[in-house]
Amino acid sequence: MLTIFLNIGITVAQIIGGLISGSLSLLSDALHNFTDVISLIISYSASKFSKKKATLKYTFGYKRAEIIAAFINASTLIVVAFILIYHSIERFINPQVIESTLVIYMSILAILGNGFSVILLLKDRKQNMNITSAFEHLFTDMMASVAVLIGGVLMKYYQIYWVDSVLTFAIAIYLIIVGYKLFKDSFNVLMLFTPNAVEIKEIVERIDNFDHVKKMHHVHVWQLNEEETHLEAEIDFDKDLKLSEFEVILEKIEKLLNEDYAINHVTIQPEFEKDDDKNLIVQD
């Protein structure tokens, strides 16, 4: 909440300063700060929603709220970046005289505000994609403000006004680089793709070597969120096991998957002489 209010103040100040000074880089920084405010509100809301308990209607609760927030935030980073690239090229072709003193003061204000916000989220930045997305927004904006400050100094003392456009372009490229990775990671989770650290073939080979296991097939592995990785599969057994015998094997499977692959939710369907598709991956 504190970082939200800080960034609202910075955004308003930079918009006023950018309009008065005529600095595109300051306005682009303000636009980026505005996306920070939106992303922080989304992240804050998602964090609250993710803690809601599951119900009969929402059996998973809202555990994916933070992944959705990360996806939205990453998308806004990329969209804003392309808007900035367009305007930076336009301004480079038609450079304008800029009130650099105001640019310097506003960029210092933004550095202090965003720097404090970064410190507030520093400890929890690796907690999940949601916090990471908020942190990346704030950190990139702080670095952008440093670039704007440098540009302001160059414009004030050396009258190099084209640097305003170059800095805006550089900020945009950096936003694309940061946003793309976060976009890709959150997209993979939302699409139920197999986590990169999980090798399905390796898992199947190891479980197929368990006593009485004939063949593991019809496997799905996905992330519900960053804390929960699920696996479901069907296993053919070489004899008609008692339920108690199956439970012993299941415990070994769960231990292997949890300790070696960080898979903490396992659903196995036991089968004996069932006539079905025995392929490793089956399109449902």
Rank of each mutant, 00 (worst) to 15 (best):
M1V: 03
L2M: 10
L6C: 05
A13N: 05
G17E: 03
G17Y: 02
L19Y: 13
I20M: 09
I20S: 03
G22A: 04
S23I: 03
L26Y: 04
L27S: 03
D29E: 07
A30F: 09
L31E: 12
H32C: 01
N33Y: 02
F34Y: 10
D36E: 05
I42R: 09
Y44G: 02
S45Y: 13
S45H: 13
A46R: 01
S47P: 02
K48W: 07
K51H: 15
K53R: 09
L56M: 15
K57L: 14
Y62D: 08
K63P: 03
A65M: 03
E66F: 01
T76P: 08
V80F: 09
A81W: 11
F82L: 14
I83W: 10
I85C: 12
Y86R: 08
Y86H: 06
V97T: 11
T101K: 14
Y105Q: 07
Y105L: 12
M106H: 07
A110F: 06
A110Y: 07
G113S: 00
N114P: 01
G115K: 00
F116W: 05
S117N: 04
S117G: 08
I119M: 08
I119V: 10
I119P: 05
L121D: 00
D124R: 13
R125L: 00
R125A: 00
A134L: 05
A134K: 02
H137P: 02
F139A: 14
F139Y: 14
M143E: 07
L149N: 05
L149T: 08
G151R: 00
G152A: 04
V153Q: 05
L154T: 09
L154H: 11
K156D: 13
K156S: 14
Y157H: 08
Y157A: 08
I160T: 11
Y161A: 03
V163H: 11
V163F: 14
D164G: 00
L167A: 10
A170R: 07
A170W: 11
I171Q: 11
I173S: 05
Y174R: 11
I177V: 14
G179K: 09
Y180K: 15
Y180G: 12
L182D: 01
F183C: 04
D185I: 12
S186Q: 01
L190Q: 12
L190D: 12
F193G: 10
N196Y: 14
I200N: 01
I200D: 00
I200K: 01
K201T: 13
I203R: 06
R206W: 09
N209T: 14
F210V: 07
K215Q: 15
M216F: 10
H218W: 05
H218I: 06
V219F: 00
L224H: 03
N225L: 06
E227V: 03
E228I: 15
E228F: 12
E232I: 11
D238W: 02
L241S: 09
K242P: 03
E245H: 06
I249F: 05
L250V: 03
L250G: 04
I253T: 10
D260L: 06
A262F: 08
N264E: 01
T267F: 09
T267S: 13
E271V: 05
D275R: 13
D275M: 13
D276K: 14
D276H: 13
K278S: 13
V282A: 11
D284T: 09
